[in-house]
Design a protein around this nucleic acid. Structure first.
Lengths: 200, 200
DNA sequence: GAACTCAGTTAATAACCATTAACTTAGCAT
DNA sequence: ATGCTAAGTTAATGGTTATTAACTGAGTTC
């Protein structure tokens, strides 16, 4: 889209920005948005304090960039699963596999997203809501093709429930410091999601 | 246990205390522990500001009372389900039914418990952890009798996943202001939990 | 290489907020 | 009735913190 000057300074700036976002995700996941100071955010990224304002207009804007990014990634991944052109059952399995991978590989942002959503600015909250809704509707649509007898409200409730199921590992990790059996968790969560959605 | 003076003043104090706890649950659920001031907590209960210190030694202690209470209630309910003397399958259904009822009737405390756990004092955190672990072990034990081929780690992971599934409604409510079809959510969540745990 | 840009720094500034102090008053016991 | 207890009030107090100001210096451009 826009031209990249590709000079050393812009590179350094881009790097600093992603380091800021990554360390912010870890800090927010651990202590919550209001439990982290701008000083904390800066020093976790190797700079101190107000330097953060060179990259984001404020603390809330940093959270916004983080959560909008996550929501976009989730939606893009979900769309890719649908675009792969499988039959409906395989598409659902692809959605489940994608979401499980996402939750296991980025537990921090998962936790921040449903913990600090309310700390977003009005505008960021609106945008995240739109992206999240679109992601949910992907699931609702596939479920509707697979189970035409279920109403849209029920399918939406089920989609949320499956997200809760899959996103539970970040929570149990955060609560108990318990490492889930590394990769061992993946097949268990996938099977539980399929069976939970299949109905009796 | 201890004698109840039963005078008007102690009654009023007990009432004020429960009002404080209830409104604190609502406020914490909405804005998070660090997003609520002592002034907010007091005025939500009809008194203003430092009066809270007549009932709790501080903000953190109030959170502690709230979460220890929830954890005790959960454990008591789980023990009741086991003590009912059903066979293992019926006991599991009783556990699921109890947890679904709890999550649907007290979404606020559910949300606070897995959002603001880290804001507890060291001692309260220890106590809540012990109670939570005991509750999880009830599930792990029943699952072990029903599915002896599954290891304890897998059963624990599955218990946590089912909690995430059932606790998802507080989250979706908080995120979207979406009222789940009142009582309509209960059977759907119960069926998903059973099927998720049943394995293929 | 001279002018400029801009990411960084450290020092204000201004709220906000948990907790404590000092005081008031309604209820309880003798 | 009278003194005491304790729940409540409004004013400090002290610390934390988001944000802005003023300044510095390395990298970029011409």
């Amino acid at each position: 889209m826009s031209e990249s000057p590709a000079t050393a300074r812009t590179q350094a700036k881009a790097n600093r920005r992603t380091v800021l976002l990554d360390s912010a995700a870890a800090l927010f996941a651990q202590r919550g948005f209001n439990g982290v100071s701008i000083e904390d955010l800066g020093s976790a990224a190797g700079v101190s304090g107000p330097a953060v304002y060179r990259h984001f207009s404020g603390k809330q804007a940093l959270l916004g960039a983080l959560l909008v990014g996550v929501s976009e990634d989730l939606l893009a991944g979900g769309r890719a699963a649908l675009a792969a052109g499988h039959d409906d059952a395989a598409t659902l399995r692809a959605l489940v596999a994608f979401h499980v991978d996402f939750a296991l590989s980025k537990p921090d942002v998962i936790r921040v997203q449903d913990r600090d959503f309310d700390s977003l600015s009005t505008e960021d909250r609106r945008q995240v809501r739109i992206l999240q809704r679109a992601y949910v509707e992907l699931w609702v649509e596939v479920l509707g093709r697979l189970y035409p007898d279920r109403g849209a409200d029920m399918r939406r409730l089920q989609a949320h429930a499956v997200f809760g199921l899959i996103n539970s590992t970040p929570h149990s990790v955060a609560l108990h410091g318990r490492r889930p059996g590394a990769s061992g968790a993946r097949p268990v969560l996938e099977a539980m999601a399929w069976n939970g959605l299949a109905g009796s």
